[in-house]
Design a binder for these strands. Structure first.
Lengths: 239, 239
DNA sequence: AACGCTATGATTGTCAACAAAAGCTGATCA
DNA sequence: TGATCAGCTTTTGTTGACAATCATAGCGTT
């Protein structure tokens, strides 16, 4: 089995609650439902033409993905945005993806490594192309692909689930709203990581991955500080 | 707020599904429900005197804790036991708790550090006492307390939640069934970690924590290999 | 005018019945 | 004898109605 599968671990939804969960998740991630908004069960159930029971099950799944929070007898609401939380996520990714890179360095098959390297080459071309088209989302997606590949190659199933299912939904949530600038530097860091993995140097791969994520965190922080208060206002924590 | 609160983050359950969730979780963790067993909704709902709706909500919460798995149209079952999965958990803890120790080294208040040091002293006494009474569970609980304190002191709320809510239920699940021997060596390693934190040396605290968890993993692995096939048979993966 | 209390409306939690799917039993046929 | 399929049973998914809880607005009191 190769690790090069689409980032969307798309298992065909068989149940109504499942389909609803996927729809709602997409809506939240892509900003169709504003961050921090309270969820009205009767209203949502009506607009999606499902019963409240199925909706509650879908909401429960969203809670697993950390995309909504629920309080007893009060209700659910979309998570709200905070810079502090984004920094926390970067810290966790630093630790976990560092470990993933270490494991991937020894576990990844040579052909998968070749594919990963090819992916980077394509990205190099895409960067200039995307730059021209102003399609930053293109670059972001390929950035996510890179990280997904390495995580998948770690071989640690639980690590994969914790990252891909639990944490990366949050990453997408923030990424969509921040639309961070994606510097060529990040691509260089990616290449260094792959080179270490090609040398099967797990220790170095981990160090480089941690450095890369820490650097990304600082780039995001710097970008946030340049944003106008108005831009941040929409996204600031609502509590 | 001090980090020295009971490991059971006990918020009084207000809803039936909540209370049921806590009951079931305890039952699973303490082995009242055998690992790998299929959950019959009508049966469980009957024995706990609740409706299937509430039960399903509780099961959904158990799924979040990674204590049960659910397949559509087939049902839920208690997670089953596998050595490979236990090793995976140790790897994740190595990465995440290492980061927690690094953060705690700079965040922890001096008085909390003093408390932690005192906790270790008490454990030192308790070890001999427990040794005499053959109450290995005593030692394990205090081991968990140690790790909980450092995680809580990291200050990273999401890291705390991912570890304390998601991963440590699994740790307890395995710990109850393996009943691992708790060597004095582990206590020494704990002391080294605290000393590094007292020096506010986050880098070293992380290294020592990672070393400690890696060593614990190898101790667990070694102990597993000495177990008879019969002992392991009850706990082996049922698939 | 400000604070607290009460009644009302809306929302969430809970339940039991219905529909659909999976698993099993036993009969049939090669 | 063995496999296959039909029909039945059991289990899960889904729904709408009922009960409990929370938020709000209006009133009265200090």
């Amino acid at each position: 089995m190769t690790v090069f599968q689409p980032a969307n671990l798309a298992q065909e939804p068989v149940t109504i609650a499942d389909r609803l969960f996927l729809d709602l998740r997409r809506a939240i991630l892509e900003g169709d439902m504003p961050a921090g908004k309270k969820i009205s069960e009767p209203e949502l159930a009506g607009s999606y033409k499902v019963s409240r029971g199925s909706l509650r099950e879908a909401i429960s799944k969203l809670e697993n993905c950390n995309l909504v929070t629920r309080k007893p007898n009060i209700g659910a609401r979309i998570i709200s945005f905070s810079v502090a939380q984004l920094m926390e996520i970067y810290q966790i990714r630093e630790a976990m993806e560092g470990m993933a890179a270490r494991l991937a360095a020894t576990n990844m098959s040579t052909e998968d490594l070749a594919h990963l390297s090819a992916l980077l080459d394509r990205q190099q071309e895409t960067v200039t192309e995307a730059e021209r088209l102003q399609q930053s989302r293109l670059r972001h997606d390929s950035d996510l692909d890179f990280h997904f590949c390495i995580i998948q190659a770690s071989g640690n199933d639980r690590l994969i689930r914790m990252l891909c299912q639990d944490l990366y939904d949050l990453v997408r949530f923030y990424r969509f709203r921040l639309n961070p600038s994606y510097t060529p530097k990040a691509l260089q860091e990616h290449e260094l990581i792959v080179e270490a993995m090609q040398r099967r140097d797990g220790e170095m791969a981990e160090l480089l991955m941690r450095h890369h994520i820490r650097a990304s965190r600082e780039r995001a922080r710097a970008q946030l500080e340049t944003m106008t208060p108005a831009e941040r206002g929409q996204t600031e924590k609502i509590s």
